[in-house]
Amino acid sequence: MKKLRTRNHSVVLNRSAGGDAGITFFLVILGVIMFLPLYYTVMQSFKPLDELFYYPPRFYVINPTWDNFSDLFKLMSESWVPFSRYIFNTVFITVAGVFGNLVLSSLCAYALAKVPFPGNGFFFQLIQKSLMFSSSVGGIIVFIIIAKMGWMDNLASIIVPAWCSTLGLYLMKQFMDTNVTTAVLESARLDGASEFRTFWSIAMPMVKPAWLTLIIYSFQGLWNSGASIYIYSEDLKTLNYAMTQVLTAGIARSGASAASGVIMMLVPILVFVVSQSQIIETMGSSGMKD
């Protein structure tokens, strides 16, 4: 155990070399375990047929090919619904769902964080409690509600419930608590700005990282939405559904299956890479007080 002091006498923390080595070892092993399945998916997606059925299986690809991807698209365009329809549905669900969730959550988060109306704390408690159970708990009743609304076989059945997902709202409210000072809002109010105006031109620009985080959470859920119990028309099905459908034929399509895995994971991962620093910034205020 050594205790170092730098030249300007500020204290350097106690760090043993053994500990550093142990931590590095642990991280490398665990990192490899986390990474291998994703790596293997990518490798499988580029393997030609003879390598897919090579014994014993290889961890890497020798003659990479795009065949699996073109197979996947060929399989998908064989169904009587054009392939572009599935893409359109997924993009439509994602855009409409994310947009609604963003608008409703921002408004609500702002009011909960910065407008001291009576009952404010109660509503936030409800939101916080809702994080403690998964939405599947109310699934059957939601089914009945959606059926009664006449949203069966309508994309609204996926989009509208997504508008009131609470995690994004929770994160945004917490972020506003720490990052939007009431004094700034107060001076805008004194200048005669309406509450909506204060919300839109003062508070919202200050919480850009929280926006982005909300968008990404909402996006991930919707982008991956697959088979839905509410949708039975083929021309309303999603990309994820279509891909899993063509792959049920089993082992012979393991290459195409890996290709679809790569396509589905590529988008969320890219989105995360671009926005990581903002998400981490938002998460800094994610803490919960009991």
Binding site: L104, S105, A111, S135, C164, F196
Partner: peptide
């Protein structure tokens, strides 16, 4: 602060419909 209720209304309405009511129901 009635504006506060107006601002939370759209979200809360849906939230009650798709989360709170299903649990109570």
């Amino acid at each position: 602060y009635k504006i506060g209720y107006i601002m939370i209304a759209p979200f809360m309405l849906l939230f009650f419909f798709f989360t709170i009511i299903p649990v109570i129901a």
